[in-house]
Design a protein around this nucleic acid. Structure first.
Lengths: 213, 213
DNA sequence: ATTGAAAATGAACCATATGTCATTTATTAT
DNA sequence: ATAATAAATGACATATGGTTCATTTTCAAT
C-alpha cells in the first residue's frame, strides 16, 4: 500500500525544481547548496535525498525542463510565422537580444557556470554532448525547412552555420555576463551576427515577401 | 633590519603564481583551494596569507601576468610580420586555432570559470571591465595600424568589429570546452570567423602582396 | 658568534556543507 | 478505528576549507 500517488511524487519533483531554479538564479551553480534548495522549498535537510541524488542531478533535470521549453517555443514560432524559417530566426534573435539585459536574473549564468566547472566530469561531458546535438538539431531543422521552401540557399553546410551561430551567440552572452551588456554593446553584436547569418544563408527576400503577402 | 630583499619577496610571489597556475590548470578555479596551492608550492598552511589575501587576489595577479604575455606576443607578431596587421591577425588566429585542442591543459578553463562564478562580486566586475578595455585596445590598435597603412578599409567601426571578434572567439572556446573541439568542429568555426572578419575589414590584398614583396 | 626582527611553520579553531539514519508524521487499506 | 507503511524530519557524524596565532627558523647587521 503506497502512501502517495505518482502524481504527488511528480508534484514534489516540480516543487524541488522550482525551488532549485530560484536558488540557481540568485546564487549561481557553485554557490548554491542543497541546503539552500531545501530551505527555499521550505523542507527539511535529509528530505531531498529521497528524490535527487545530488546537486548535479537536480541541475540536469532543470536544464532538461528548460530545453523542452525552447523546443516548444521554436515550434510555436514556426506556427506564428506560418512556417517561415526566416521569420522564426528573426523572432528568436529578437527575443534573445531582449533577454540579454535580463540575463542576470535568469538561470543562464548558472548554466554557463555549470559548463565551465563541470566539464571535467564524464557524466557532465556526456550529458552536454547529448544536449549539444539536441539543440543544434532544433536549429538545423528550422533552417532545413527554410532551404526546402526556398527561403534560403546556404553557401555552406547548414550544420556549420548553426554551430557557428550558437557559438557566437553564447560568446556574446558570456561577455554580457562578464563585462556587461552595455560595455560590449550586445545588441549591436547580435545584429551583426544576424547579418552574418543571413549572408551565409543567402536569404531570398523576394520569396519571403511573396510568402508574407 | 628586514630579513630578506625585495627581490626575494618577488621570487616568492612568482613561486606562488607558478604553483597557483599549476593548480588552476588541473583543478579549475572553484575546486582549487588555498590548501592545494600551498601544497603545490611545498609550503605550510598559513604561510600564503603573508603574500596574498585570498584566492581571488592570486587569480587576478595570474591573469595580469598572462595578459602581459598576450600583449608581448602581439607586439612580437607585429615585428615578425613587418608591421602587417593582416599578418598579425592571421598568425594570431592560427595560434589560437591550434591552442584550442590543448585548452584543457591551460588556465583558460579556470578563467571562464572565474568569469561565470565571479561576476556577482563588484571587485571582480570592476577588474573584468578594465581587462576588457585593455584587451580590446590591443586588437583595436593592431587593426588601426592596418587601416593606416591601407591594408584594411573596414565597413563598420573597428570597435564593433573587435568586440564581435573576441565574443565569437570566446564562444568557440567555451563550446570547445563544454562539448569538445571535435564535436563543434572548432577549427572550421575559427576559419569561418576569420572569413567574416576579413570581409568586414575589406582586406586590400593587393596592398598586402606588395608589402610582402 | 650573537642578536633581533622578519619569515615561515603547522596545530588548532571556526565555519559550513554533505549525507545518514533513527524517529516522527501522515495517509491509505482494512 | 487501527494497522501498516511510505514520507518527512532534523540531529548528528563526517569532512573539508579558511583563518589565526603562538612558536620556530632563518638571515643580516653588529
Amino acid at each position: 500500500m503506497p502512501k502517495v500517488s505518482d502524481e504527488h511524487k511528480e508534484q514534489r519533483i516540480q516543487q524541488i525544481l522550482l525551488a532549485a531554479s530560484e536558488v540557481f538564479k540568485s546564487k549561481g551553480y557553485e554557490q548554491a547548496t542543497l541546503k539552500d534548495i531545501v530551505e527555499e522549498a521550505g523542507m527539511s535537510r535529509g528530505w531531498i535525498y529521497l528524490y535527487f541524488k545530488d546537486k548535479t542531478t537536480i541541475f540536469l533535470a532543470l536544464i532538461d525542463y528548460l530545453d523542452a521549453q525552447l523546443e516548444e517555443r521554436i515550434s510555436t514560432l514556426l506556427k506564428e510565422n506560418k512556417g517561415s524559417a526566416h521569420g522564426v530566426l528573426i523572432s528568436y534573435f529578437q527575443e534573445t537580444s531582449q533577454s540579454i539585459d535580463r540575463l542576470e536574473d535568469s538561470v543562464v549564468p548558472a548554466i554557463y557556470e555549470f559548463c565551465t566547472t563541470g566539464w571535467r566530469e564524464q557524466q557532465v561531458r556526456d550529458y552536454f554532448v547529448n544536449r549539444y546535438i539536441r539543440v543544434t538539431a532544433i536549429f538545423i531543422d528550422v533552417i532545413g525547412k527554410g532551404v526546402e521552401n526556398g527561403e534560403f540557399k546556404p553557401t555552406r553546410s547548414v550544420d556549420e552555420i548553426v554551430k557557428y551561430m550558437i557559438s557566437s551567440l553564447d560568446g556574446i552572452m558570456l561577455h554580457s555576463l562578464a563585462f556587461g551588456s552595455q560595455q560590449i554593446n550586445a545588441v549591436q553584436q547580435v545584429n551583426l551576427l544576424i547579418n552574418q547569418l543571413m549572408e551565409m544563408l543567402s536569404v531570398n527576400f523576394l520569396k519571403i515577401m511573396e510568402k508574407n503577402s
